[in-house]
Design a protein around this nucleic acid. Sequence first.
DNA 1: TTTAGCACTCTCAATACCAGAGTGCTAAAA
DNA 2: TTTTAGCACTCTGGTATTGAGAGTGCTAAA
Lengths: 345, 345
Amino acid sequence: MARKDLTQRQQIILRLVVQEYVRTAAPVSSKTISETYHLGVSSATVRNEMALLEQLGYLTQPHTSAGRIPTEQGYRYFVERLMEQTDLSPEEQRMISHQFHQARLELDQWLKLSAAVLANATRNASLVTAPKSEQCRLKHLELISIQEDVALLILVLQGGAVKQQILTLDQAMSQDELHRTARRLTDLWAQATASRIAASLPNQTGLTAQVGEVVSSAMQRIDARRSSDIYHDGLLNILNQPEFKQQEGIQQVIRALEERRLVDQLVERVLKEGGVHIIIGGEGQWRELSDVSIVLGRYGVGDSLTGAMGVVGPVRMTYGRAVSIVRYMSRLMSDLLYDLYGCEN
Amino acid sequence: MARKDLTQRQQIILRLVVQEYVRTAAPVSSKTISETYHLGVSSATVRNEMALLEQLGYLTQPHTSAGRIPTEQGYRYFVERLMEQTDLSPEEQRMISHQFHQARLELDQWLKLSAAVLANATRNASLVTAPKSEQCRLKHLELISIQEDVALLILVLQGGAVKQQILTLDQAMSQDELHRTARRLTDLWAQATASRIAASLPNQTGLTAQVGEVVSSAMQRIDARRSSDIYHDGLLNILNQPEFKQQEGIQQVIRALEERRLVDQLVERVLKEGGVHIIIGGEGQWRELSDVSIVLGRYGVGDSLTGAMGVVGPVRMTYGRAVSIVRYMSRLMSDLLYDLYGCEN
DNA sequence: TTTAGCACTCTCAATACCAGAGTGCTAAAA
DNA sequence: TTTTAGCACTCTGGTATTGAGAGTGCTAAA
C-alpha cells in the first residue's frame, strides 16, 4: 500500500473522519468535514483527498454514493499517530480514585470494583483478569478443626491469595495437635512450589503425607489454571450502540467475555509485552471479533504478579479516552497490589 | 374470565399449542394441531375451541389471520396443570452428576460450575447465587505474619466461608505471638455474631481491640451484603433464540443477570417459600422482564445456609425440562453443602 | 355437535418509484 | 500544479402497490 507517508492535510482529514464517525456512527461526507471544521478548502478538495485515502486503504465507503468510514487500517493509523493522548482531567481522576478507595475490600472485590469503574467511566463493557503469579509458592498453611476428624486446610500463598480445602482426617485430632502440625509443615514447606512439595512427599507418612498431597495438588491446580478468573461488567452500556442492534455483534462481545480461549491469547500477549494494547476489530487475526475493539492494559507488581484489565466495545470507540482510563486504572490497581503484597516480591 | 374449568379437549389443545409453539417459535394453526396430532376432530372444531381459549385469555393471535400463541396466562395454566413433570432420565442424571463430581473444588468454583452445568443442560442462560447464611457467626480466626508489623487476618465463618484482610499492627509481633493472640480471640469470640463482637469491644484494648474492630466490621459487611454474589453463564445459548434477534430482548436478559435489585426480589421470595418458582414474562409485576421467563429453585441446608439457582430464557421455554433440571441440580448442590458444612448447622 | 366450504383479512416478499445525499469527473479559475 | 464550481450519476431509504399464501370466522349442512 502506501509507501509515502500521508501529507499533513490527509492526516487532519483522516483524524476528522475518525472522530466524526465515532461521534455520529454515520458515514462522513466531504461536505460535513469542510463545513463544520474550517479547513479553508472546499468540499471538492476534501473529496479528492478522501478518494486518495480510500485508495491507500484508510477509508472505505459502505456504498458508492455514501460518505466515508474508517477501515481497520484507518483506525490503526489513528490510534498510533493521530490520537491526542490526553491524561484524564484531575477531577475525573479524583472521581475514579474516590470510587476506588471508598472501601476496604478483598482482592476479588477489588477486581469486581475495577470492572465496574472501568465500565462506568468508559461507558463500555469492561474486563479484568485476576492477577496471576508465575508459579505459586506456599507462604503459610493452617489447619482448623471442624469436627473430630474433619479439618479445614487453609493455604496462604505468596502474593496473598488464600485457598481453603476440606480434609477428612485418618484419625481424630485436637485443634492443638492440628496447630502444631500446621506449624511444622509451614516451616517445612515455606517458599516451596507445588513440585517441590510433591517431590518431598515420598519421604513422608501419615498426616504430613496426606496434607502434602492435598497442598501440592491444590497448588498445581492453581498453576495449571492458565486463565485466571475473569470479571466483567457493563454489557448493558454497549448494547445500545447502533452496531449491536443486530444480535450478531452482541454475540461477539459476549463471546469475547465468556469464552476464555479467545481472551487468554490477548491477555497472554499483554502480560508478556506490557503497555496498553489496542486490538481493532480482531485485526484480521480473530475473525470472531470483527465487530469489536479491545483496549487492554497490564497491571501488577514486578513480573510475578500481573493481570490484565481493559475495555471491550464497538470498533467505533473513543480510543483516546479508553486508553487514558485503562492506563489510569492499571496504575491504581498496581499501586494497590504493591501496598498489599508488593513488599514480598 | 373463566369460571368453569377447561374441558378435557380444551386442555389437550392448549397443551399442544404451547408445546408446538415452544418447539417452532411460530404461531400455531388449527390445521397443524388437527393434522400432526390425531385428535379425531377436524381443523374447524379445533378452530372453534381455539377461539374459545382466546376468549378465556389463554391464547392470542399476533394478527387476525395468523395462528395462535399462548398468553402468559396460557403458559401459567400449562406449567401448573398440563406440564408433564418427568424426572430426568437416568443417563442424563449420570451425565450431570459426572460433570459435577469430577473435581474437588472450593465453594465459589462449585457455584461457577453449577451455573455452567445448568446452562449447558437447559441450553439457556443460568444464574446461581452464593449461599447466604442468616447472620454470620465466627468460627475461627487466624493471624499470619507477613512482615514485622503487617499481618494477614483470616476469618473462618460458620458455614465454611473464609475471608481475609490485611492488618497493619501498631507494634511488631512475631508469628508466635500472633498465634497465641489468634487462639485467645478464637476462644473469646467463637460463635459470636458481628454485633456481639462489636458489643464486647469497649472492654478491650490494644491488638484485641484492633482486631475486633476489623473482624466485626468485616462480618457486618458480609451481613449487610443482602445480595450475595451471583454467578451466571450461558448467555450465548439464548442469544440465538429468535425472540432475541432484536436487542430489546437481550437487554432484558442481561439486565436480569446484571442488575441485582431485580433478581434480589425473586431470590428473596424463593428463599422464603422454597420449591421451584416459575416467573413467566415478568408476570405483570416486572415490566422489565416481559420477554423472559425464569425458573428458580432454592438449595441449601436447613434455613441458615441457602441460595437460589435457576434458568433464564425466553418465555417460550421448555418449562418441564427446566424445572426437572433445576430441581435436580438444587438437590445435588444441597447434598454437597450438607457434606461440606451440614454437620454444623 | 361437528364439519365442509368459502369469503375475508392480514402478512410477507417482491417490485416500483422518488427524494435526498454524496460522489466522481470535467473544465475553468487561481 | 492545485483548487474549485458545476453537474450528471449512483445508491439508499422510505413509501406505495401488488399478489400469493396462510389462517381465520362464519354459515349452512350433516
